[in-house]
């Protein structure tokens, strides 16, 4: 049985998928994951999830975000001068998020 493993670097972070382990049950999966995925990287917590319990939808099945222009979903689409302070804050947030994504 395959268990997908999710690692959290430090408290408050998201658990991020980092690989899997073969194990007969949850208890053994945790023991194996502890060594296989927690021994060389900073680890605060690990989750194990039976692979078969994970649901998936991908680009073959779905058009994520739709196919038509829905840029109104993003606050910066509203080019009104001067921008409302909420819009400005939202825009800053978005730019910052994009910058971080670019770095990562």
């Amino acid at each position: 049985m395959i268990w997908e493993v999710f690692r959290q670097n430090q408290a408050g972070d998201y658990h991020t998928h980092c690989g899997n382990v073969h194990a007969p049950d949850r208890e053994m999966a945790l023991l194996f994951a502890e060594v296989q995925h927690g021994r060389r990287k900073p680890t605060n917590s690990l989750w194990v999830v039976p692979q078969e319990e994970i649901g998936e939808v991908d680009t073959e099945d779905a058009k994520f975000g739709g196919t038509t222009n829905k840029s109104y979903r993003f606050a910066r689409t509203y080019n009104v001068e001067p921008a409302a302070e909420e819009v400005e804050a939202s825009e800053k947030e978005l730019t910052e998020a994009e910058r971080k994504r670019g770095e990562a």
């Binding site: 382990v21 073969h22 194990a23 194996f32 060594v35 296989q36």
Partner: peptide
């Protein structure tokens, strides 16, 4: 017996 047991034992 398995890769996982192997790594755990080595650990």
């Amino acid at each position: 017996p398995t890769l996982e047991s192997d790594i755990s034992m080595a650990n």
